[in-house]
Design a protein around this nucleic acid. Sequence first.
RNA 1: GGCCCGUUCGUCUAGGGGUUAGGACGCCACUCUUUCAAGGUGGAGACACGGGUUCGAUUCCCGUACGGGCUACCA
Length: 518
Amino acid sequence: MAHTRVRFAPSPTGPLHIGGLRTALYNYLFARQTGGTFILRIEDTDQTRYVPGAEQYILESLAWAGIQPDEGPRAGGDYAPYRQSERKHIYRKYAEQLIASGHAYYAFDTPQELEARREQARQAGNHNFKYDSSVRLEMRNSLTLPAEEVARLIESGAPYVVRLKVPRGEMITFRDRIRGEVQFHSEELDDKVLLKSDGMPTYHLANVVDDYLMKITHVIRGEEWLPSTGHHVLLYRAFGWTLHMPEFAHLPLILKPNGKGKLSKRDGVRLGIPVFPLAWQGDTPEDSFAGFREFGFLPEAVVNFLAFLGWNPGTDQEVFTLDELCRAFSLDKVSKGGARFDFDKARWFNQQHILRMDSRELARRVRPWIEKYGPQPDEDYLVAFCELMKERVTLLPDFWTEGYYFFVPVQQYDEAAIKKRWKPERRPAMEGLVAALENLTDWTAEAIGQTIKQYLTDHGLKFGDVLPFVRLALAGTMKGPGVNEMIALLGKETTLQRLRAGLDLFDRLVTASVESAD
RNA sequence: GGCCCGUUCGUCUAGGGGUUAGGACGCCACUCUUUCAAGGUGGAGACACGGGUUCGAUUCCCGUACGGGCUACCA
């Protein structure tokens, strides 16, 4: 196969949707796997929908996910510029070439005239007005107007568009990498606007021209583009570029959790789940959203999760690094049906990636989530903490909520557990243990374990007789890492102090409940 | 409405003319453990429907149903 060149071509109209990120990911994986080039092209041809900051957001999202473009507005490349607004001058030439060859025409119908025409069709019971071969000869365009009139209109600066002259009676067939052969009757296609009255191209023209100019070999995009691919094929034919036509691969959509429609930003706010990679600050609170990053997802996990929404390697392996995905990915294994967004599965992927991540690397990711609350733990302490906690969290904020007591005093004791278990008779045994620990100098989990075990056997006690109370005094909760490790990390001073304070608290709680029971 | 695409456990999916239809998430149980997790074991749980083709269809074909996408001077 010739050198593959694929592009991700988002429109900067707002934050990049998670579905868009997946499209970018698949393009990236395909490029990496085939040793090809991954290109980012900004499709900003709609000036009315342009949102400042959106392009920056796209760049940051891709960077966060670890899928950097080889060519693009930031990265540069031999086919620059990569922003369609900066390529505006290119498209007109191609539009005129099409007019000259009889594949397109000027149309002067105003939006009002078109609307009137649509309304007229509605009156006649046709709710599906199309500007196509059946009506174009009734409209105001270079096909119906005398040549002098057309020239006069253009010279006088009258607004016009260029439309594709879709031929009659042709069958348009193309092979989609994912769906096989797809066909359209040319009769069903309307005369799409190619060049808008503001001089900008529409997606259809810009897309085909740029893909040709940038030597794109594979167009991997969402299924919502499937219906207009017929027009695109026609365009390649009209330009005489059929031999350079890229291979198409239309990806299944990412659906709402209930399966009804494609996932939208509304679903995010409605269900309290992220549908964007990063937070987006809109003009209003309703237009601002948290992203996967802010929810505490690792980019590795999001990438893994997204990769599996519509693709699978055909093996039992589910947890993949980006590199592994690059190697395992194949367009042929992309499924056809839409995939529902499953937040629980996303959480599971995150848990898996946390679990497998090197603790030192993990500590780097976790640090902001701890410092957010004040503490600034030193590196080794944080690494050790991550080592203890990583198998009991799913999202990054859990490190704090589940293990805050490693950084600050216990805020809340599980009083129900204490009242249920604590017997004041246990106090001497606990005090003895405190004394034993106080004498210990080798403050490691192993030595601590030895000391506790020795003490228990010496006094005929079982683990269950004291350990739950050690845990409660140290962490306030019955949950958490092994007691030995917990003691070792907390340090001698904190451990002894919390144990002593705990004993007093336990007694107080139990006597209080006895009194209230009277 | 028209056109296009799709349909295997609740979800993501493997599979493919003859299988006990496999895995993962979630759920349940058990196990391990001082606890919570993680891990291990086990369980419930699916081929949308109707016709063909065939000795035999979940698998191939055709319909139907259902779902989705598109139907702009938006991408």
